[in-house]
């Protein structure tokens, strides 16, 4: 199948280095300590953070000198084309783990001993790149909850189809079977589905990194606006 037209346009009309529209909003769940909605084109994820709070299940506490980070990822039944029945499958569990590890690496957990931080992620619409959208949403929610972090973890995917590196794959491109890399900037790079020669990997990786930077820029804007709003309303 033709994923990139001779004019260099993709199926949804984007260029190879173009991202989908990003919409980010903070403070959507009123009861949570921090929350955010993150949209990348048709992919939409809602994140809620609770904590740091008292550890609910003491047996889960492995280290006593730092906070416990828990993450629950789920996909709404209406999020994909055909209705999903299965609640927990291996993909979900794996994704929860990946997101949890990423977030744990960027939260300064040693500042909050004997407490736990819960991150709940729900995919409302899935159109490729849910993993990236989840990490971005979680970052926003954590920043909103005032939890100290080393850095803003951001993520973006890139793939290689029709011998062109493509940024921010949607569902059709994602399921085309080409190689794709999801890059989380700050500490972690994760997962590749198909083989990719070293030199093309370099370009694909660079493209994804560029994408991450653009997302980080957007996230910073949102946070900055939010912080300013809160401060001047509060005023002394």
């Amino acid at each position: 199948m033709e994923y990139v037209s001779p004019e260099g346009l993709r199926l949804d009309g984007r260029r190879f280095n173009e991202m989908r529209q990003i919409v980010a909003e903070i403070g959507v769940v009123s009861k949570a300590d921090g929350s955010a909605v993150f949209e990348m084109g048709n992919t939409k994820v809602i994140a809620a953070v609770y904590g740091p709070r008292e550890i609910q299940n003491k047996s889960q506490q492995l280290k006593h000198d730092r906070a416990l980070v828990l993450c629950e990822y789920s996909m709404a039944q209406f999020s994909t084309g055909d209705r999903r029945r299965q609640k927990q499958d291996r993909r979900t569990t794996e994704l929860s783990l990946v997101i949890r590890q990423t977030m744990e690496a960027c939260i300064l957990t040693e500042l909050m001993p004997h407490s736990q931080i819960d991150i709940f992620l729900q995919v409302l619409q899935a159109d490729g790149g849910t993993r990236s959208a989840c990490i971005n949403a979680a970052t926003l929610a954590l920043a909103d909850a005032g939890i100290p972090m080393r850095d803003l973890a951001v993520s973006c995917s890139a793939g290689y189809l029709n011998s062109t590196p493509l940024l921010d794959l949607n569902y059709v491109e994602d399921s085309a079977g080409g190689a794709d890399v999801t890059v989380g900037i700050l500490p972690k790079t994760d997962k590749m589905d198909a083989k990719l020669p070293m030199e093309t990997f370099e370009t694909v990786f660079a493209l994804a990194s560029e994408g991450c930077k653009a997302i980080a820029e957007r996230i910073r804007e949102v946070l900055e606006e939010n912080t300013k709003q809160l401060e001047y309303r509060r005023a002394a």
Binding site: G34, G51, P52, G146, N226, T227
Partner: peptide
Amino acid sequence: VCGVVERVDKLVYVRTLRAR
């Protein structure tokens, strides 16, 4: 964290807004 920078003598800290 997100917040406002406060300076008291030599101490520099960030006062968080929405936090516990």
